[in-house]
């Protein structure tokens, strides 16, 4: 723990605040890109029923892919094309996005699917157009599941971003990897504690946001449907 309480480690270009900042920056960029891809796609598949095979197949295949291997493979493939830092930032971001898409995609799909068919029917009967049904009924009703997918994805990203330190990406993973290289166990422990705290903090933050934005009329029912659609939280595979 000494490492954490040494004030020298809290300033400068490789100080702890900088590392946390980097970690968050990469994580949030990857999450935003993944959400922009996965949410519309999940809605489309859920509403139209087209491409359902993507859901099961993709989710399972990507869960089986070892992220360390993927990361290293992409760095070796891409880095020669980029002279600068982009050589490892880009492959890292690609892997982070790749791992974050499945939980958001499957949950959005399951969420749209789990919306009470009678509610959609009633909306149509009242003269709602397709777009209006989507924005006023299907999306609000599937929100809890979508957010639970985002929560899993963010944990996955924070965890994988740590590992990306091995291929020179900044962030809290640096403390673990550099500590290992320098045989400095206290530095490794500091990194591990900080990463764990960061993950816990964001997990609780998203849980809090979910409680705030989801209609209380839904919470009871959707807790049940969520457990049917997905037996447990999508696991972090890193």
């Amino acid at each position: 723990m000494n490492y954490l309480f040494d004030p020298r480690h809290w300033t400068g270009a490789d100080g702890i605040p900088t590392l946390i900042g980097e970690h968050l920056l990469y994580s949030l960029i990857a999450l935003a890109i993944a959400a922009v891809i996965a949410v519309p796609l999940g809605i489309y598949i859920g509403v139209t029923g087209k491409g359902v095979f993507l859901i099961a197949g993709l989710a399972n295949a990507l869960r089986a892919l070892p992220s360390v291997g993927l990361l290293i493979l992409l760095v070796l493939l891409i880095s020669p094309a980029f002279p600068s830092k982009m050589g490892y930032i880009l492959p890292s971001l690609i892997v982070l996005v790749l791992l974050a898409v499945p939980p958001i995609l499957t949950n959005t799909y399951a969420g749209v699917r789990a919306v009470d068919a009678a509610a959609v029917d009633a909306a149509r009967g009242m003269g709602f157009r397709t777009m209006k049904i989507l924005t006023d009924v299907q999306l609000p009703c599937s929100l809890p599941l979508v957010l639970s997918g985002v929560r899993s994805a963010l944990l996955q990203i924070i965890s994988t971003a740590t590992i990306a330190a091995y291929i020179s990406l900044g962030g809290l993973g640096r403390l673990l990897i550099d500590g290992k290289a320098q045989n400095d166990y206290s530095q490794m422990v500091a990194g591990a504690v900080l990463v764990a705290l960061l993950a816990l903090f964001f997990d609780q933050l998203l849980a809090f946001i979910t409680r705030r934005v989801v209609s209380p009329g839904l919470t009871r029912r959707t807790i049940k449907s969520a457990s049917i659609a997905e037996p447990a939280k999508t696991p972090v595979t890193v």
């Binding site: 504690v193 990463v195 816990l200 997990d203 939280k233 972090v236 890193v238």
Partner: peptide
């Protein structure tokens, strides 16, 4: 749920 949020590399080290 809390245990699950701890990243694996961190858990290996801790």
């Amino acid at each position: 749920g809390l245990l699950y949020t701890v990243p694996s590399l961190a858990l290996f080290v801790l």
